[in-house]
């Protein structure tokens, strides 16, 4: 079947099998390898991307279900060589260890902050419930999300 959708701002049209999962479309057809296939069972969140601005696990979405919609992956976050504020915060707060869960964590965090720009620490922890870090590096990940929220506030007040 033919699917048309927007990936990181680029309109695409590709011939795919109906059974193709969004994560395989992104990795194998679009060549975007940030979204990782981790558990492949909707648990770990390493494949998280934004679909119409909302976090979804791309291992459990058919590319056919995303037709006509807008997908953003970690590759689509930086603009003009500037990292996205959440990416900057993950770097500044060392919100990663091995890095495998990081693209999914960043996308889930962006989705969380879009829905709740001023989360408490508890809300961040609950908001990242769908993302697992096998290094158990949660503490700095939570700090990074809180720092990104504070930075967004500072930019608004500045």
């Amino acid at each position: 079947m033919q699917v048309e959708l927007t990936v990181n701002g680029e309109r695409r049209s590709d011939e795919v099998e109906p059974r193709m999962l969004l994560v395989h479309y992104l990795r194998d057809v679009c060549g975007l390898r940030a979204a990782n296939v981790g558990c492949d069972t909707t648990s770990c969140g390493a494949c998280t991307v934004l679909l119409n601005g909302e976090s979804v696990k791309s291992c459990t979405v058919l590319v056919a279900q995303a037709a006509g919609q807008e997908v953003i992956t970690t590759e689509g976050l930086a603009s003009d060589g500037e990292l996205h504020p959440v990416q900057r915060a993950f770097r500044a707060e060392h919100g990663l260890q091995c890095g495998f869960c990081t693209p999914g964590m960043v996308m889930a965090a962006i989705g969380l902050l879009a829905e709740n720009p001023h989360p408490t620490e508890r809300e961040v922890r609950e908001g990242l419930e769908g993302n697992l870090c096998r290094c158990t590096g949660y503490h700095n990940i939570v700090r990074a999300v809180l720092a990104a929220a504070r930075e967004a506030d500072a930019e608004v007040t500045a």
């Binding site: 909707t42 969140g45 679909l51 976090s55 696990k57 989705g111 969380l112 908001g127 769908g130």
Partner: peptide, 9 residues
Amino acid sequence: VGDPQIRHR
């Protein structure tokens, strides 16, 4: 239900 990503779908 599930987690935020699951609740979006």
